[in-house]
Amino acid sequence: MQDLIYISIDQHGVEGALRKDVKITDDQILHVADLALIRLDDDEVRGLRSQLDKILGYMDILAVVDTTGVAPTHHPLPLVNAMRDDHGQGCQDLDDVLRNAPQHEDGYIVVPRVIGKGMRENA
């Protein structure tokens, strides 16, 4: 199994795959973890760095593809104008909203106090 997989990396990896130069640093891992709001300990940072480094090295095979003038694909089918009319079927019961809530009070969802400034966009 292991052998088979490495054969396929070699075959499909072309130049650049599994390169030795560093693609991502510990600091970048921490920054990305911040964006994704996932707390990592030091071991996890090191582990993720080495794994992502290898994966990103493999992604380098894309660099050789000439994509000049190629439109990106965001939907596999060319659908447009999927819209609905401005009327609705009404809302759900409050019980349904709160059913899965870890904490609620008087109909509100309750969360630990917001302390960190700057988490907020639209005031």
Binding site: L37, N100, P102, V111, P112, R113, V114, I115, G116, M119
Partner: peptide
Amino acid sequence: DGVRYGLRARDVRELGDMYA
């Protein structure tokens, strides 16, 4: 994110801590 459903970490100090 632990707000509306699913797991929420316990004994958290504030929101950012709860999220992470």
